[in-house]
Computed example of a mutant assay.
Amino acid sequence: MDQQSPYEIRPVRAEEWRKVKELRLAALQDPLAHLAFLETTEEALARPDVFWKDRAARGSAGLVSRQFVAVGAGDAWVGTVTGIVEDAGGLDFFGNPVEERQIQLVGVYVRPEHRGTGLLGGLFRDAVDWATGLGVRRVRLFVHEDNGRAAAAYRKLGFVPSGVRVVGDHGNELEYVRKDTGSGR
C-alpha cells in the first residue's frame, strides 16, 4: 500500500488459491452476478481444489493471463480483475477471430463497500500496464447490455462501446474498448 491509497494492488500468487476461490465466491453473490459472470455459485462450489490451484497458478504466471487483486486493511481481498491476452489470428471466447493482439479484461469485481473509491481504476491500470509490457495496445471488455452499473463504471475509466455485439448465454454482450490505447476500433 502506498501513502495515497489504502490498497495494495498486485498479481495473485499461486499459493493464494484459497483467497482466489473466496473472492470469486463473493463476486458470484453480487445481485448482478448472473449478468457479469459465466458461472454460478453452485458451479464454483462444485469445483475441486485442483481447479482453484490451477486458476491461481495461471493468474500468477503472467504469460497469457494475469489476475490482479486489491488488498485492503487486515490483508482483506477487496477487488480483482484478470487480463487475458488474445493473439491476432486466434479466436476469442465467443469464437470470433481476433484481428490484432489485445487484452480482454474479465472477472471484474470490487466488494460493494469499496466501490466508488477509485479502486477499479487502480486495478485496471495495473492490468493494462502489464499488457502494455507484453506489447499489447488494444484493451477491451464485454458487458451485458442490462448491466448499466458496470457500463457506467467502465465509461468513467475511458471505455467506449465499439459497436461489436455478441450473443452470450444470458443475452447481448457489448464490447467496450479503451479509447486511448491505440486502435480504438
Results as ranks from 00 to 15, higher is better:
L157I: 05
G135E: 05
G168L: 06
G79H: 00
D75Q: 14
D30P: 14
Y154M: 06
D129S: 14
F94D: 08
G135W: 04
G184T: 06
N96G: 03
D87S: 10
L25Q: 11
R165H: 15
V177M: 02
A57W: 09
V71P: 03
D49P: 06
L23V: 04
G90V: 02
R55A: 08
T40K: 13
R101T: 11
V20K: 02
S162F: 00
A151R: 15
K53Y: 07
G116D: 02
G95M: 05
F94Q: 08
V106P: 02
E173K: 10
E173Q: 15
L35Y: 05
E15I: 07
G95Y: 04
V143A: 12
T80C: 08
V85P: 00
V69A: 10
I9C: 08
L63M: 12
H170T: 14
N172C: 09
L25K: 11
E16Y: 06
V81H: 03
K156I: 09
R140H: 07
K179Y: 05
R24A: 02
E8T: 09
R125G: 07
F51L: 10
G121M: 14
H114F: 09
G89Q: 05
L105C: 12
F142W: 10
R13G: 07
R149Y: 12
G95Q: 05
V164T: 13
V106C: 03
V69W: 02
V71Y: 02
N147R: 10
A44R: 02
A33V: 03
N172I: 10
G89A: 06
A152F: 13
V128R: 15
K156H: 15
A88Y: 10
R10G: 11
L119I: 03
L32W: 14
G133V: 04
E8G: 05
A76N: 12
V177D: 00
G122P: 08
E173W: 15
R66W: 00
S162E: 01
V71T: 03
H144N: 11
L174T: 01
Y109K: 07
R24K: 13
Q104W: 04
R47T: 06
A27H: 00
G59K: 05
G62F: 01
P97T: 01
L134I: 04
E100W: 13
P112S: 01
T41A: 09
V139N: 09
H114P: 03
S65P: 02
K21S: 09
E175D: 04
G148F: 05
A152W: 14
L134D: 00
R111K: 13
P31T: 00
T82I: 06
A153S: 15
L38N: 07
R125H: 15
R101E: 12
G95N: 10
N172D: 10
G74L: 04
N147C: 09
L105K: 08
D75P: 01
V166A: 04
V160S: 08
L35M: 09
G62V: 01
F93R: 08
V106A: 07
D92A: 02
